[in-house]
Amino acid sequence: MKNIIKKMLFLTAAFGTFALMNPCLAAQESEASIVNIINPSKSVGVQIGDLLSREIEIEVLKPYQISKNAFPVKGTNQNGVELNDIKIDSKTNDEKTTYKIKLSYQVFGYSAKPSVMQLPAEHIEVTGGKANTSTPVSINIPAWRFWQASLVPTGLKSAKDSVQPQHKPTLIDLNPHKTRLIVLIAMFVTGLIGLIYINADKQWLPFMNGAFAQAHRKIKKLNKNKANEQKALLYMHQAFNKIHGANLFASDVNDFVSANPAYTSQKAEILRFFERSNAALFSDHAENSEQLINELINLSKTLRNCERGVK
């Protein structure tokens, strides 16, 4: 017992002497200290490429501070562990500055067998203080160890030998997509056919060989001059006569639209055509041939659309 008491006294005296002889440690503890360290939650099974983060909170009393250059440098590689990123957040009040340092490491070291690696210890110098009285202050962040696990067993030569049967991924039900796709394609094709039906001008299209369709094609081919004016009018009259089943004249237009309701909407235009036709064919009123033929092209196209049921 006496021995024990003697030893304790000795240790106390020794520690006190050491503390008195090392003012640096005393200053370090009082001027800058690590408040908190949060290490990665998982210290085993770490593999090459994994990211490990640790957060350190440091308090530095004023006038001390940590210079930006004092922090660890991003990209530093120590024993196969590289500092991948560093983020520093600091808050200052009247007495102290609190630094929150987030260190992100990536493991590049590899061993065929499980081995111990570590996030490196970091040494951060604290600067500031009064030039004459202050003593150098630094913070030592301790290393943190973990077990590195190999990716494949030792001596594995062919990956194929170790292939494990896998479950098939869950199949997505394609039916709704398929139905939607079919509907969309059908709509697209219908629209396309509709557009072609309405806008195309080819003889092979359905209902494209009616009286006005033929007249329209013939008139379009004519040169727009005085000599062809009568021909263009003739083609239009032929078309009207063909549909009416007899010669059609201005006085018969009411009967014509009654018998052929598809042309009812164009009654005013038809009457105007007969008016212009009479003026061009039977009187000496000069017509602008180009304009007349252009109008006949438009009218024959409109009437062709009526003929085909295109509004």
């Binding site: 009568q230 009018l233 003739l234 009259h237 032929q238 006569n241 010669n247 064919l281």
Partner: peptide
């Protein structure tokens, strides 16, 4: 009803 004007051949 039948005789056309303008006449087909002439035009």
């Amino acid at each position: 009803n039948t005789v056309a004007v303008p006449a087909l051949a002439k035009a």
